[in-house]
Nucleic acid binder design. Structure first.
Lengths: 172, 172
DNA sequence: ACACAACCTGACCAACCGGTCAACAATTTT
DNA sequence: AAAATTGTTGACCGGTTGGTCAGGTTGTGT
């Protein structure tokens, strides 16, 4: 809390005036990240098929990994520790969200727009792959000669992910 | 350290006899995880092509996620924090390892055994997807009605991942 | 039996951390 | 302008944490 206060440029006691406990401050942070996370699915909806829908979703989530790497890490840490402060969100909002998208993907499968894949595992793969570029960004950077991915490399990453997954689900 | 000593059934001072500092104990843990991680690639080598090699690698890494979920989380946490204690491993062992597998994948591409995909991004996708089942196991469990994946569900997960990726790289 | 090393342990300590509080300043309401 | 509410701050506190240390015990080589 002292460090956060220092970086925010105010005394620690004043920080505690706005956020009585560290946990409340942390909860706000996680909630904000969750919002960004959910909004990435806007591009998912109203898509005519998997190529547009999932393609746009990958783009959106890759962009989040790029722009909010720390947010992604906080989210990952929270879930890895068993979601002690946002378990309720997982059981309500996330569960509903997931069910909705899984149903949509299943519809695409039924309509023959893609191969018959398990929608849940496809979603997990989308989350895993896109968030990996944020959560394991340091490892990727190290394997990239110690340099962050360039504009061109980010595009190549996006294209690779889209290419493999869209072909993998038989959508292209 | 007190908690670790309690769970190990010995006084804290005795724990400090074997591991002078907490960081040294932690380093040993991370190193051990890294070993397991690397050995998963044994199945990768000596494979005639991507279907066998990458298929076996996915199986091996999914099995690690299942059997050592906490190890996977520790590794993820370490990398997410910028690899403060195993940066040297990333720059030596991991870098060499990655280069070797990327070359192998590139060879398969050149031999026409799979579609031309960027080997690096394929590796990242393999890591991300398989480790996701450990690191985000709590989230998956919550979305599975609060129950851990059953034997059958783990098999379905493995099959889904292999199906999508192997088809995604044009190997099947 | 003796010496020496390796191993074990309870008690203790300095540093750190989240949080509190009384006093004070600024702003808004009446 | 007075009163009340909101915002700001330095100093302080109890609990926890990683780590130490003197003294004791066990094992080993001679």
């Amino acid at each position: 809390m002292q460090l956060i206060a220092d970086m925010a440029g105010l005394p620690k006691a004043n920080l505690h005036y706005y956020f009585p406990t560290k946990e409340e401050l942390y909860r706000k942070v996680v909630q904000q990240i969750f919002e960004i996370w959910l909004h990435a699915a806007d591009s998912f909806d109203n898509a005519p098929g998997p190529v547009e829908g999932i393609g746009a979703y990958i783009d959106a989530k890759m962009e989040i990994s790029r722009r909010h790497p720390d947010g992604s890490k906080v989210w990952a840490s929270e879930v890895m520790h068993g979601a002690p402060v946002i378990q309720d969100y997982l059981e309500t909002t996330l569960r509903d969200w997931t069910k909705g998208r899984a149903d949509l993907i299943q519809r695409w499968v039924d309509e023959g727009k893609m191969a018959p894949v398990d929608p849940r595992h496809l979603l997990y793969m989308l989350w895993a792959t896109t968030q990996h570029y944020a959560d394991f960004g340091h490892q990727i950077e190290t394997l990239n000669g110690g340099k962050p991915l360039s504009e061109r490399q980010w595009k190549a990453a996006k294209d690779s992910v889209k290419q493999i997954i869209l072909r993998g689900i038989g959508a292209v």
